[in-house]
């Protein structure tokens, strides 16, 4: 199992992969169970209707909540899932190099004949695979929920929403790797990336109501994840391309910085 850094990183994540997958399956089934009650509850729509537009925007496309696509677009795809998956991406991402530095193991690793870019590549690939597995279980949980509670929702749309979410997780993974290399300190890197995630999340959520946020929205990875509401409207290809670009761009930046970086004891 421990033939290379990729497999070692994967092995280190096995327990996490199990629990995160189990958690997503549970959330999916729970939300599917909850949907019929939500769709029949007219009081909640009246209450939401009376809210100011800014708050309504923050809640997402609540008007569609009586439909399966609208309901699942709001929950889990607008809040639960992105926030949860970012925990995984950010915590693992900053640990790619900063974790090895803090554990004091980077010296031994880099004393072996592996390039710095090779270390990042294998680790990022391994975490990307772990994220893919978690997303796959998430999709399975959602499908299981739809079947168990006889909810009519396109599996293709559901898959598209999960692909968009996966791309969001990859964007934040490579952003976190870069932050970890800049600071060589997990806490500082998590602080920076979490701050950026929070701001970009709020900018994207408030943008429909606040004019000045409209342009700022394009700097938010959340916009390319949920801006086109893939579960309602299908995957926006241009958004997908931009998400791939963000992930690849920060991956390249992380390698460039790491190659130039002096590594102290």
């Amino acid at each position: 199992m421990l033939n290379n850094i990729f497999l070692k990183t994967l092995r280190d994540q096995l327990v996490s992969i199990f629990w995160w997958s189990a958690g997503f399956i549970f959330i999916s089934i729970y939300l599917s169970y909850f949907f019929p009650y939500m769709s029949e509850n007219t009081a909640i729509f009246k209450m939401v209707d009376s809210l100011p537009p800014v708050i309504k925007n923050l809640l997402g496309d609540i008007e569609f909540v009586s439909t399966p696509a609208g309901f699942f677009n709001l929950q889990p795809f607008s809040y639960f899932a992105p926030i949860l998956i970012l925990f995984y991406s950010v915590s693992r991402g900053v640990g790619v190099i900063a974790g090895e530095v803090e554990d004091g193991t980077l010296d031994l690793l880099l004393s072996k004949p592996i390039s710095r870019s090779g270390v990042i590549f294998q680790k990022v690939l391994s975490i990307s695979l772990a994220l893919a597995i978690i997303h796959l279980f998430f999709l399975s949980g959602m499908v299981l929920g739809l079947i168990l509670f006889k909810i009519d929702l396109s599996i293709i749309r559901l898959t598209e929403a999960i692909v968009a979410l996966y791309m969001l997780s990859l964007s934040f993974l490579t952003i976190s790797v870069t932050a970890g290399i800049i600071f060589l300190n997990k806490r500082k890197a998590v602080g920076l990336v979490s701050g950026y995630a929070l701001i970009s999340f709020l900018v994207n959520a408030y943008a429909p109501a606040v004019n000045s946020f409209q342009i700022a929205r394009i700097f938010s990875p959340f916009y390319y994840n949920s801006g086109s509401a893939p579960i309602l409207n299908g995957l926006d290809l241009s958004h997908l391309v931009i998400q791939v670009f963000i992930a690849v761009f920060f991956f390249m930046v992380s390698i460039l910085i790491f190659k130039k970086r002096d590594l102290y004891c």
């Binding site: 554990d103 004091g104 193991t105 010296d107 031994l108 004393s111 072996k112 004949p113 004891c265």
Partner: peptide
């Protein structure tokens, strides 16, 4: 590096 063995001064292992 492929021909070198190294023991760091501040040793940390997994």
């Amino acid at each position: 590096l492929s021909r070198t063995g190294y023991l760091p001064g501040e040793l940390s292992l997994y």
